[in-house]
Design a protein around this nucleic acid. Structure first.
Lengths: 348, 348
DNA sequence: CATGAGCACTTCCCGTGGTGGAGTGCGAAC
DNA sequence: GTTCGCACTCCACCACGGGAAGTGCTCATG
């Protein structure tokens, strides 16, 4: 359908405009296209093609006598038919070393990944940490740590460990704590955190014994702490080097978007079921503050479960071919890394 | 000495210039001072005083025929003799509710404090989490969490709990882990983390038995994870509303400074021994990128120990009287809050 | 001798108008 | 269908100039 809409000539011109604009960030005129990309075609021919492209909504003019600028539709067309441009050897080794390195723990892995995404793309890297909603609880431990507080340790079936201190409502002995932890583990073990949340929201009749009731309130506390996902943003200022964000208001808007992590988290978690790399261009983004940006994301997995997503936020005139390859590679690297982290079973 | 340097007249004029400049961010002329602050004095008289003040280094002119702008020396003079301007009732109650509230855990407390510092000052709020260097270890626990990993739980004498997962070099049984934790606790309990680091750096002859050697390497891993302090930055973009940061390069420099947390941490931890509120004005700051900003900090404590510091980063023409009061109050609030959090002993 | 008034001077700010360049659209020619 | 040439438009840049703000200096005055 799109193929029918555009002739070969128009397609080539469109591509040239996109490539040039990606490089220069300046509106590109017919003359420049002729000189730099198609010396065999005269500027006048290009002009005709460009006029067609504008009518079809692929190009637009900032003002009547300026060059043309690609629209979101143009980028979409380009992205859908381009080939990813594989990472260079040095880039790949650097990623492998920094992200695939063996020593780091989970949070360091996420942080390094976001930093590398940023510095290799020269835009901003984002990593959304695994949500717990779809993973299953293995067990809960409660350790007394003095006073009316305890350390709650939550272990999932996939082997992730989260711990937080919680404040008990009343002083409890170690034995009581252990019993409560056992009750919680028995009551909720094997369920996904989503299911657990459902049960907690609609608890039915309260248990008879005191410890049972305590277990419920403490479980509430423990799982409440796990609800928020972490979002790692690396190199937020990197993106500010792009000329389209040189304007003060645009800049402020973008930074505000970065600071409001909650909405970014939504953005990165929504539609994160599909495999492969996803590209959201400009106004395709539901988040209005990000209409000037494009977002490239991919999911990372543990075994067959999608755990989270990561990606790059950049200007609409992003070097898509490169970034898509980078994001894809990084996602796979993180998945492999997670596998190794979790599967490391006793070798004996 | 300073008193001798400045006559009463000059002092009043200087104060007027500072006040007006903090409000308007525009160079202030003799006419404006006369009209707004000292109608009894003619502009000419003010001019004379201003000329004196310029010679003494308290004022400067952006260009020969503009008004005057206070120098760092002027702010210093002002800050040293001003009185803090107490918080309004609504501000105080808001702080109490948001920061003093009873439910939050340690990290939430820090985060809320930084956000409130920011939104009440309209600048940027910063909270440096407690360092461990001077607190003493109470005990270490190691929990097996599947595979070759364990959850290390570190409890300090002050009752703080930190936990991190670590990767064991080899598979270990639960009993072995427990024994190793016991060895670490016995070997290092009661020592400050600084002392522990010293021992680890210079370990002497390695122990005979296998578990002893393992305890050493694992202790190394555990304590390495505790070395970095967390820095909470709230409302970094708030400060960008200030006109002096409207320039693109200044803005970028500032954001870069915020992103490089390591140096900020240094800044906030250095000279953080003294009680009370400390004000660092413009070029007094050792960190060159922050010569355009002023920093107001205060330490918060647990009992008699200084745990960390918090404060506000703003433009040099900060509303010092207000911010000093805000920072002071917040620091005390956090201290009180920590006390309650940790001391909550079993009431029976 | 400190204060205040007047005045000439400097500097910046901002709006104006002119100019050159880049790019388009269109009609005519190949 | 392609190319050429030309007239037109719009922006970006610069130079110019008036106006405002502010100073320093001088001199009169209590």
């Amino acid at each position: 359908m799109v193929e029918a809409e555009l002739g070969e000539r128009s397609r080539q011109v469109l591509e040239a405009v996109i490539v040039d604009y990606t490089l220069t960030a300046e509106p590109v005129g017919s003359r420049a296209v002729s000189r730099k990309y198609h010396p065999d075609l005269s500027p006048a021919t290009i002009r005709n093609a460009m006029a067609d492209l504008e009518e079809l909504g692929y190009l637009s003019q900032p003002h009547p006598s300026a060059g043309r600028v690609p629209t979101d539709k143009a980028y979409r067309f380009y992205v859908d038919r381009m080939k990813a441009q594989p990472l260079s050897r040095t880039e790949a080794t650097r990623l492998n070393r920094q992200v695939g390195g063996a020593r780091s723990e989970l949070d360091e892995l996420m942080e390094h990944a976001s930093l590398q995404l940023s510095s290799l793309s020269r835009y901003t890297g984002v990593v959304l940490a695994p949500p717990l909603s779809h993973t299953r609880l293995e067990r809960v431990d409660l350790l007394p740590v003095g006073g009316e507080r305890a350390l709650a340790v939550v272990v999932t079936e996939t082997g992730w460990v989260t711990s937080r201190t919680i404040t008990l409502g009343e002083p409890l002995r170690q034995l009581e704590l252990r019993e409560i932890a056992r009750l919680i583990t028995e009551g909720f073990g094997g369920l996904t955190f989503q299911e657990i949340q459902g049960r907690l929201d609609d608890p039915g009749p309260p248990p008879e014994e005191r410890l049972g009731r305590l277990a419920l309130t403490l479980a509430e506390k423990v799982f409440a702490l796990l609800r928020d996902r972490n979002l790692y943003i690396g190199g937020a200022i990197n993106i500010l080097d792009q000329p389209e964000f040189a304007d003060l208001d645009t800049m402020r808007m973008l930074l505000k978007a970065f600071e409001e992590k909650r909405r970014l988290i939504e953005l990165f978690s929504s539609r994160a079921e599909a495999e492969g790399v996803r590209v959201v261009i400009g106004s395709e983004n539901p988040y209005e503050e990000m209409h000037e940006t494009s977002v490239v994301t991919a999911v990372y997995k543990y075994g067959n479960h999608i755990l989270g997503s990561l990606g790059v936020v950049g200007p609409r005139r992003m070097r898509y071919a490169k970034v898509v390859a980078l994001v894809d590679y990084t996602a796979k690297l993180v998945s492999r890394r997670l596998d190794r982290l979790a599967r490391a079973e006793p070798s004996a």
